[in-house]
Design a protein around this nucleic acid. Structure first.
Lengths: 238, 238
DNA sequence: CGACTGCTGACAGAAACTGTCAGTCCCTGC
DNA sequence: GCAGGGACTGACAGTTTCTGTCAGCAGTCG
């Protein structure tokens, strides 16, 4: 019936409390009543509600189930992962390629992803990851983009229309609205594939020739998956 | 979704800042200067010092290296946050590149790794992973290997000697024992770098010209890391 | 020795956190 | 429909904490 933590919890900064709360939630698979969380943290119920709200604002997927309590839904933190050495090397090499041969935001994402994976690996595999000797060659030549490809990726993910300015191979500048479908990374160029509203057909565009880019808030009327299927059917590419 | 840009960082609660700081530190493998952390977080240097101290008090193993900055040593109680959509796309693209442009065993390893990652994703991110439209172009031309590169990788990882049969550019066939150090993936060829016992120097070999491969049970007498350092020092490659 | 870097101590004004209390919302039983 | 209760939110004021400034300390380098 003792509360061993209670005395220690008398002094707890808000920060420490939030970390503790997160830990507590993480260790419970089933909902924990707000009242007992509050007592454990040595804080009023009102403050507990506020702490929960703060963690949610940080992106924690905490759900309150009336009558039961709070649970931290999986998917907020990365659980431990296990790989073979070869899988680790594959991930490292792939990420290095992305970091070296695609645009900066995606390259950083690759590095960050690897760092996250590294953090949940057992020590042995972490060493494999850190000392991986698989490298990616420097590109002999690569066209550089003037627009931010992450906007394109965002549009593809969200199925948003994209308004682009494009200089075709003859040097003619055009403006079109397209439904972006896929981004292909070739050795020297990157190609954006999509449905062109002007031509009413599938088209692809070299990203280095896209001069302007604007994400239209409209989502396009058909599903990406469906369009991709059609595109593959009528296009020799990929 | 929850990663505001530097511009949005005009205001950040202390809590949010601490989480962000932790994330930032986790993502960097090398020390980050205090000043740049402070700037990134939009806060004075003094406050940054305090934030670091707070995290350390929470159990984070942050080390300050004078003149360099701060690093977070692994082993903090909180695992990293879940991947972002962009990170997933980076991993998918990287794995696709590995699957398409490297040898079969490594390609399969990439696919398996992705499957393992997929298994721990929340539904929404799994959908992102499954429907990622980032593709890798087919190689215009690629040399094919006659030997199994996974043996080379295994030798590199374990620091084992390798006995290889090699046809050089003039067509002369030779036999040598090398200490494999690194494998470089270029657009059309793959290069094995290592210390050649015959030449007593660093050499690199196109894998497609390696005609035979035998893993010697001897481990080579010096550490790979050390040799790599020397190799980089005396070789213009990478 | 002095300049410099990286960090800590002290402090006051500003910002936040906290418990109380009075609601609101929503479900349940009648 | 309506009363009752549990989960949660808004408002508020007293208190705590946080933050930038500035001065100072310990190493290090030249």
């Amino acid at each position: 019936m003792k509360h061993p933590d209670h005395l220690a919890n008398v002094f707890m900064s808000r920060t420490e409390r939030l970390f503790t709360l997160l830990q507590t939630l993480r260790h419970h698979r089933f909902p924990v009543p707000g009242a007992s969380l509050a007592e454990e943290l040595g804080v009023s119920l009102r403050t507990l509600y506020r702490d929960i709200a703060t963690l949610q604002a940080q992106g924690a997927n905490i759900e309150g189930e009336p009558g039961l309590g709070y649970v931290l839904r999986p998917g907020f933190m990365l659980p431990p992962l296990m790989f073979t050495a070869e899988e680790i090397e594959a991930l490292v090499l792939g990420s290095r390629w992305v970091a070296k041969r695609t645009d900066t935001p995606l390259g950083n994402a690759a590095k960050n992803a690897l760092a996250k994976i590294s953090a949940v690996l057992p020590a042995e595999l972490r060493r494999t990851l850190d000392s991986s000797s698989l490298m990616v060659g420097t590109p002999s030549l690569a066209e550089t983009d003037v627009v931010d490809l992450s906007i394109i990726r965002q549009a593809i993910r969200g199925e948003y229309k994209l308004r682009i300015g494009y200089r075709d191979l003859q040097g003619n500048a055009t403006q079109r609205t397209i439904w972006p479908l896929a981004l292909g990374y070739f050795d020297h160029v990157r190609m954006l594939a999509g449905w062109c509203e002007v031509r009413r057909d599938f088209r692809h565009f070299r990203t280095d020739r896209i001069s302007a880019l604007h994400l239209v808030q409209d989502r396009y009327p058909r599903s990406k998956q469906e369009l991709l299927k059609e595109w593959r059917a009528c296009d020799a590419y990929q």
